[in-house]
Design a protein around this nucleic acid. Structure first.
Length: 642
RNA sequence: GCCCACGUAGCUCAGUCGGUAGAGCACAUCCUUGGUAAGGAUGAGGUCACCGGUUCAAAUCCGGUCGUGGGCUCCA
């Protein structure tokens, strides 16, 4: 045995032989003491193992540190165990669920009658520190299923037994021990608790259904994060603070953009004048581009007879998301959750020829959906919202081309609003679906082809399509890293079928069109929320609710200020005039806080020379210029959508 | 919907042991006419989310309802 060797290749290409059974820790200590200090785990032939595991096979070896995603995962996973051990010391009756690493830290789900509150965090953190201090070695053992079940039964970890029972037969069952604490875990972990250091923090506690199923009991999920260096933890906490400052709910209040009020109803938005101004710009731009791209705009009602929704199938598959129907003169009406049936009805109002296709009908359609109260979130998740909806009716041959055109428009519009990074997903056929397999394949191929033509990187979300067809989703991330679906392109075979849509083909026969649902903003409310966060409320000039504000120094400058105001207004600039009896410094401060891009200060000098002294938000004083010059400058910027 | 936390003036927040409420900003009036991020004085403003309970006495303790936040499940 001792004579056996393993041959290992390092990332730099170097190969070395070691006695079989050597551990990563032993190797790394020999290579570099610094790396030895930073190493968290070993990656051997795409398997991640702990530093203490004996190496018995040849292959590629790499040491993972916190700089590697996999290294962070191990670090946070071990941190989750650390927290679990501390919790078990304080609350021995707690039962452990699962405790994985997540994007910026880790959590552990525990079952405990007594609620854990943020006040308990300090106590838990103190216990964690003691465990780190003790520097218990973290030891892996593999055990046969029966032994494992017995063991966890003994320590009354019922949830763990449930997990084991669901493991496939061939699964190697492993557990990790540190001190008195043992947890069922696939691993790997850091070599000892001391390696985790003391730069950790518990962040929040939340309910979470056991195994993500709302029919199961609810456990307490405790979130935390940890870093190898103090500075990294501080930076992370600082990032969270900064993100909170950009929160659209906070900025919406500060900048007086919108409100949500108890007296109106939750999930229902009041767009205040400043928010409405931004929305009008969004809408106007959108309308112009849609006419330019061959769409026709339509308007449709907010309610329709329930029959319509029965025909469309919404009363069946979408009922739980709809407001309840209302009755009027013995007829049931339904507040609309979607716009599609209306557009279809417009299509069907006349006999269509293949020459009419593609027919693109677009609308800012305000829809109402019942969302469970717990999911509502500012502008991002609401109960009444306006979709920038459109439905494209086309022949099967036109499908790919139409999707490419939609993607072109999506990218153009998102980029104009300053979004250059997004996640693209292709969602394929789910388990429950309608339509023929051939149709599905053709439609999925059309979407794939379109993505290819556009050269977009995308991920496939298998089985995540809508039951009526596959779709492309484009998601934008908010400041806290949550991603929100905005644009969506969905192929639909179902509704043309249900509504018996037809067109007369070249051959004189009746054919069924294909329908594409698409939205670019997704919802104006959500998109606006994302915009607010994206710009931290400091909208670019073309979007800013107030583009420039005139600040007269004293009231003897008001007449001149009014002249400048009139001129800019005539030029289409959103301008305000601050006539308040305040010092100019005060007015500037307010304009800065309101994130107005340009401030125009006018005093004796300006009146005399027909100029304005221009201050740019953030940049400060950029000198004085003639009113005409300033007008040309700002009008130009607006035109370029800067 | 579920778990936990929270709800005090338009906004941001104090409020001790249960003894009937406070600041700053904003608002109104007056003074001040001041050149690039807060001039001064005075005043008005509260059914302490709502409903009920305990108590001589509740913003404070207890229960319920509504709303908000962090999550879970679900989704634009």
């Amino acid at each position: 045995m001792s004579s056996q060797k393993v041959k290992l290749r390092f990332p730099d290409g170097q190969e070395k032989e070691y006695p079989a059974g050597i551990t990563g820790e032993e190797i790394v200590r020999e290579i570099s003491p610094r790396l030895a200090k930073e190493a968290i785990a070993v990656k051997l032939n795409d398997k991640i193992i702990e530093l203490t595991r004996p190496i018995t096979e040849d292959g590629d070896i790499r040491f993972l540190t916190f700089a590697d995603k996999e290294g962070r995962e191990v670090f946070w996973h071990s941190s989750a165990h650390l927290m679990a051990q501390a919790i078990k010391r304080i609350y021995p009756e707690a039962k452990l669920g699962i405790g994985p690493p997540i994007e910026d830290g880790f959590y552990y789900d525990i079952e405990l009658d007594r609620p854990i509150t943020p006040e308990d965090f300090e106590k838990i953190e103190a216990e964690m520190a003691r465990i780190v201090e003790a520097d218990y070695p973290i030891v892996r053992k593999e055990l046969p299923r029966q032994k494992a079940i017995e063991f966890f039964k003994n320590i009354r970890e019922d949830l763990k037994i449930e997990l084991i029972n669901d493991f496939p037969d061939e699964e190697v069952i492993s557990a990790y021990s540190q001190g008195e604490f043992t947890d069922l875990c696939r691993g790997p972990h850091v070599p000892s608790t001391g390696r985790l250091g003391k730069h950790f923090k518990l962040l929040s506690v939340a309910g979470a259904y056991w195994r993500g199923d709302e029919n199961n009991k609810m456990l307490q999920r405790i979130y935390g994060t940890s870093y190898p260096k103090k500075k990294m933890l501080e930076e992370h906490l600082h990032r969270i603070e900064e993100a909170k400052k950009r929160d659209h709910r906070k900025l919406g209040k500060q900048l007086d953009l919108f409100s949500i009020q108890e007296s109106i109803g939750n999930g229902l938005i009041l767009w205040h004048p400043k928010g409405a101004r931004v929305r009008r710009v969004m809408e106007q731009f959108w309308i112009d581009e849609h006419y330019n791209h061959g769409y026709e705009l339509v308007y449709t009602p907010h309610v329709a007879k329930l029959d319509l929704w029965e025909r469309s199938g919404h009363t069946g598959f979408y009922r739980e998301n709809m407001f309840p129907p209302m009755e009027l003169e013995d007829i049931h009406y339904q507040l609309k959750p979607m716009n599609c049936p209306f557009h279809i009805t417009i299509y069907k109002n006349q006999l269509r020829s293949y020459r009419d296709l593609p027919l693109r009908l677009a609308e800012f359609g305000t829809v109402y959906r019942y969302e469970r109260s717990g999911v509502l979130h500012g502008l991002m998740r609401v109960r009444g919202f306006t979709q920038d909806d459109a439905h494209i009716f086309c022949t099967p041959e036109q499908l790919t081309d139409e999707i490419v055109k939609v993607l072109d428009l999506v990218i153009y519009i998102l980029q104009t609003f300053g979004f250059h990074e997004y996640e693209v997903y292709l969602s394929t056929r789910p388990e429950k679906f309608v339509g023929s397999l051939e149709n599905w394949e053709a439609a999925t191929a059309a979407l794939e082809k379109a993505l290819e033509v556009k050269g977009l990187n995308y991920e496939v979300d298998p089985g995540e399509g809508v039951f009526y067809g596959p779709k492309i989703d484009i998601k934008i991330k908010d400041v806290l890293g949550r991603s929100w679906q905005c644009s969506t392109v969905q192929v639909d075979f179902n509704l043309p079928e249900r509504f018996e849509m037809e067109y007369i083909g070249e051959d004189g026969k009746r054919h069924r069109p294909i329908m594409v649902h698409r939205a670019l903003f997704g919802s104006l409310e959500r998109f606006f929320g994302i915009l607010i966060e994206h710009y931290a409320g400091a909208f670019p000039v073309w979007l800013a609710p107030v583009q420039t504000i005139i600040l007269p120094i004293t009231d003897r400058h008001h007449n001149y200020a009014q002249k400048v105001y009139d001129q800019l207004r005539r030029a289409g600039v959103r301008v305000e005039l601050d006539r308040r009896n305040e010092k100019v410094g005060f007015k500037i401060r307010e304009a800065e806080v309101q994130k107005i891009p340009y401030m125009l200060i006018v005093g004796d000098k300006e009146v005399e020379s027909n100029t304005v002294s221009v201050r740019h938000k953030g940049e400060g004083d950029i000198g004085s210029m003639r009113v005409d010059e300033f007008e040309a400058r700002i009008v130009h910027e607006i035109k370029l959508k800067k």
